[in-house]
Design a protein around this nucleic acid. Sequence first.
DNA 1: TTTCAACTCCCCCAAAATAGTGAGGGCACC
DNA 2: GGTGCCCTCACTATTTTGGGGGAGTTGAAA
Lengths: 217, 217
Amino acid sequence: MQDISVALRDHLAIAHVAYHWVDSAGDQYGCGTYSIAWQERYIDQNYVRIDPVVSGCYQRFHPVDWKQLDWSSKATRAFQTESIEYGIGNQGFSVPVRGPNGQFALFTVNHSCDDAMWETFTETHRRELILIAHYLNEKALEFEPSRTPDIAQALSPREVDAMTLLAIGYNRAQVADTLSISEHTLRVYIESARFKLGALNTTHAVARALTRGLIVV
Amino acid sequence: MQDISVALRDHLAIAHVAYHWVDSAGDQYGCGTYSIAWQERYIDQNYVRIDPVVSGCYQRFHPVDWKQLDWSSKATRAFQTESIEYGIGNQGFSVPVRGPNGQFALFTVNHSCDDAMWETFTETHRRELILIAHYLNEKALEFEPSRTPDIAQALSPREVDAMTLLAIGYNRAQVADTLSISEHTLRVYIESARFKLGALNTTHAVARALTRGLIVV
DNA sequence: TTTCAACTCCCCCAAAATAGTGAGGGCACC
DNA sequence: GGTGCCCTCACTATTTTGGGGGAGTTGAAA
């Protein structure tokens, strides 16, 4: 994968390319042409938490220019400043890639140049970059088949109801009332959903149901 | 939109096409060539909860043939039988479309034919169908600009930590311990995150943080 | 026919989360 | 030099969840 990254970068004649996978367990995985120092720093500081590229792309279907992201918060600006110090470049363009069970990956290209030049580049190569993102993601799955997610165990309709209503903020009494069942019955559903999802508590169960796409909120 | 659907169907020479949007509030919206009876039935029975096309596509990045989906549960099979009775056809192919804040839509084509013929059709038109899905989604957003999601308010790093750990099933004591802060302090984070997310309780806050991409679990 | 999954209902009690108040230091931006 | 956000810590009381039991119906599959 590393070789692919370097070849890609040279082919595109830009500063950096990177593929970044964020696992549903919080693990990270990837390849790219960033310096080791930056990679270590990123992991060490757990920057995935505050990286607006990650959260911004997670919220989008389409590729995104880093200029479109929200860099306004304090932590975010500090992160940006630091990333530039580490030679990432002042321009960035990332393509989100999604898969089953919350699989989420990013393909990013970086460079140092003015806005006009960068826009020309991204406009010209937009389709190509999207295809590369998909190709890289497929390759990554080939190399790491263990990361192919398990088939999500289906929930029963009532369990889906319960999880869905809990996910929109109802408490047990409200959910039971909405579903016109007793709170005791509701608890049975919540517990069986928890069990099926291997969740430790209700919040965990709802989070898993969401990331596994078992409920839509 | 309805005109577009009909034109599309005729152009593709198949039984049905449909665009189906599932809102983050649980609302649905769409257009297509399904019979009114089926649409009403679908809404009335809240079939979005159990429709394996919805949940299956929600879990996938790539377009999906309905044959690849899991139709094994009882409720699912009943749903399938009924959909065929309503003239949906025995073949289906859906393209998921995603956007910010859990925006999720589906573009589906249906027909009645044997597997080989359907495979030929979908293979031949795969790229076209993907493009149509994106095009329809953009059109839908034009017609319903109110559905363009709000910009997600960022959480502070500590709030992200808290939400993330809660989403993986930790209770408050464990989270506080993991973050090496007092449980009292943790509560402040959870409450401020709840406030920022407009959430009614912790489960709701975690669900929103997840669907808005503010945390990655 | 049995078996099994899904759905429904009930009790008791311990544990956890939430509401409503506080307070103080640090740091950045205007 | 105020204003606001972020981080940290504290108390009390109430509400909500969770764990441990158990029991009965339906309907579809084996």
